[in-house]
Nucleic acid binder design. Structure first.
Length: 579
RNA sequence: UGGGCGAUCGUUCAAUGGUAGGACAAUGCCCUUUGGAGGCAUUUAUCCAGGUUCGAAUCCUGGUCGCCCAGCCA
């Protein structure tokens, strides 16, 4: 058993620069005897995706390793984009990944303190109210190569700034009319230091503070201090915030408060996958997918519905590693860890996605000559990888369904499955030999007639005869039908952002990312499937029940999602031959 | 072009001055009552040029290439 657990342990002993840094800080007692404190700081403006899972495993995982704690903090400084629905979904997703936060925090908890600190900076002449418009501020900022120019309001007296800022807070001014800026250096080569905006006027209702405030702190003014308030020792974030560090440090130094240490790491990028909350929101809003939890989405809720597991996501994220290089991990790696997980856990079942009738002409007749009535039950392992999963009895009869693609009237080279005159094994049942095929007007096979070898019951012939292929099947009389949803990649290009001039990422959407099958035939035991069950439909793939199912309803509607197909060597051979 | 960050197999992460290794992918073989799983094997890498050193992926110098920053977003 090559359990992924061992792999995780191995990975853990591998160094990574985050762990190294924390270990070093603990060793040198950089923060005295204080325990390691981290935080996961999402903005509640969308659903979490697998990129966030990386941050979660790092923030919570590393703190765990060092016996520290992790806060869940919502960076909710922009009331116009944030909603309670997102807060709830984020909590659900973090828990689903297996973590519980030490403290549940909100940047909005600190609005009062942040305001007090702003007052302090204003009084100290370190911040000023600027009457310039957003556009004018932009023009004054300069460019990458040219320094900015001072705002005409830059040298207002502390008294005037104090008065203006307090009136901004009291709601005297219109949105956009004034901002509070830090007074740093308009000529800094780091644009973040060119008198960044600390507060803007926004007469908007906040999801938590309601209408209490009409000025809201900018992320850059709130983030470092939030870390400081929570006494976060190691504040891990993604690379693009690297050059915000000097600004955070400036605020911390001016205020003389606890200095958290920020360490940046690379974002997770996955081939064929879009990991931008803004774009994901667009997919939802424009109904390009059904919802945030559409199984094609890289959101944690989508992946959960699709049948992915927290353990597999963890193995993947840890195995993909962390660094400071911007790369793109192949989606195949994620799929590998999910298959590995499911291979060990998933119960096996037989399901025919594209049914083709198979009739055994020499199968014994039932009592009083009623051929169809004769039924026997074969014993089948629930999971050959796990004997403790037990066995079940599966009905077998004269008329069966097999996979349409498992029969070829004219077999291509290396095709081992059923074709006229060929003998194959029906899994756990009998050897059968195809005799003749009934075709429709278009020449498509609709029914295959075969003979079986009664001595091969269970799937082996006493004479030691070998067959090249084993196929799954279901008894026609006992089969239940279900809707099957097959998912493919949402995008057609490895890098969805690779677009032609004038085109959009959404132009790279895969029009065939969802295929719905309505005629699938399943073995009867699947009628009892539960939402949390994981199945391998043998030779087909991994599946789970979708919440759209209503097994207890009159129709007993069943909907299965394909998490992932099984690896398909034959498809590869066929493709190569065709190419 | 100002500032910041980075560069190791196809991809991704290791090697912390001392045999360049793992995982995914690919290829071939073995095995198989899932063309699944498993086993074995193979291929492919230190961005370039100098330098320091007994010894450099690692340290130094100079290039090259890539990513990020000009929101009253986070």
């Amino acid at each position: 058993m090559t359990d992924s657990h061992t792999e995780i342990q191995d990975e853990r002993t591998h160094s990574n620069f985050l762990r190294d840094q924390i270990a070093e800080d603990v060793r040198t007692k950089k923060y005295g005897d204080a325990q390691v404190q981290t935080r996961f700081p999402p903005e509640p403006n969308g659903y979490l995706h697998i990129g966030h899972a990386k941050a979660i495993f790092l923030d919570f995982g590393l703190a765990d390793e060092f016996g520290g704690k992790t806060n869940l903090r919502f960076d909710d400084t922009n009331p116009e984009k944030e909603e309670t629905e997102y807060v709830e979904s984020i909590k659900t997703d973090v828990r689903w990944l297996g973590f519980d936060w030490d403290r549940l925090c909100y940047a909005s908890d600190y609005f009062g303190q942040l305001y007090e600190w702003a007052l302090q900076l204003v009084k100290a002449g370190k911040a000023y109210v600027d009457d310039l418009s957003a556009d004018e501020i932009r023009r004054h900022r300069g460019t990458l190569t040219e320094p900015g120019t001072d705002s005409p309001y830059r040298n207002r007296s502390a008294e005037e700034n104090l008065d203006l800022f307090q009136r901004m807070k009291s709601g005297e001014f219109a949105d956009g009319s004034r901002v509070l800026r830090a007074k740093i250096d308009m000529a800094s080569p780091n644009l973040n230091m060119r008198d960044p905006v600390m507060y803007r006027i926004l007469h908007a209702t906040h999801h938590r503070t309601g209408d209490e405030w009409c000025i809201y702190p900018m992320y850059d003014y709130a983030h470092g201090q939030s870390d400081s308030i929570e006494r976060v020792t190691h504040s891990m974030c993604t690379l693009e915030f690297t050059d915000h560090q000097p600004l955070y440090k400036w605020f911390i130094a001016q205020l003389g408060i606890f200095p958290s240490q920020q360490i940046e790491f690379d974002r997770l990028n996955l081939t064929y996958t879009l990991l931008s909350k803004r774009k994901l929101l667009q997919l939802v809003q424009e109904n390009r997918v059904n919802a945030w939890d559409d199984p094609r989405m890289p959101t944690l809720s989508g992946m959960r519905r699709r049948g992915f597991s927290p353990g597999a996501i963890r193995s993947f994220v840890i195995s993909a590693g962390v660094s400071r290089t911007n790369g793109m991990v192949e989606i195949e790696m994620l799929e590998h860890f999910q298959r590995d997980d499911l291979n060990h856990r998933a119960r096996r079942a037989m399901a025919v996605l594209h049914p083709l009738k198979l009739v055994i002409d020499n199968y014994p007749e039932g009592p009083e000559g009623q051929k169809e009535d004769f039924v026997e039950f074969v014993e089948v392992a629930n999971n050959p990888e796990d004997p403790s999963a037990g066995t079940r009895q599966v009905p077998f009869s004269r008329e069966l369904f097999i996979e349409h693609d498992d029969f070829r009237e004219v077999p291509p080279p290396k095709y081992y499955r059923l074709s006229p005159g060929k003998e194959v094994r029906l899994r756990n049942a009998y050897f059968v030999t195809a005799q003749r095929v009934v075709k429709d007007a278009q020449g498509n096979p609709v029914e295959v007639h075969c003979t079986y070898d009664p001595a091969s019951r269970g799937g082996n012939s006493p004479d030691g005869r070998k067959v090249k292929s084993t196929m799954h099947w279901v008894s026609a009389a006992h089969a239940i039908s279900a809707e099957i949803r097959l998912y493919d990649k949402l995008f057609t290009k490895p890098d969805p952002g690779d677009v032609e001039e004038g085109q959009d990422v959404l132009d790279n959407l895969n029009p065939n990312s969802l295929e719905i099958l309505t005629g699938a035939m399943l073995e009867p035991s699947l009628a009892n499937a539960k939402l949390e069950d994981r199945f391998q439909f043998e030779r087909v793939g991994y599946f789970c029940l979708d919440p759209d199912s209503a097994p207890d309803s009159v129709e007993g509607k069943l909907v299965f999602n394909r998490t992932l197909p099984l690896k398909d060597t034959w498809a590869k051979i066929e493709k190569k031959a065709g190419a």
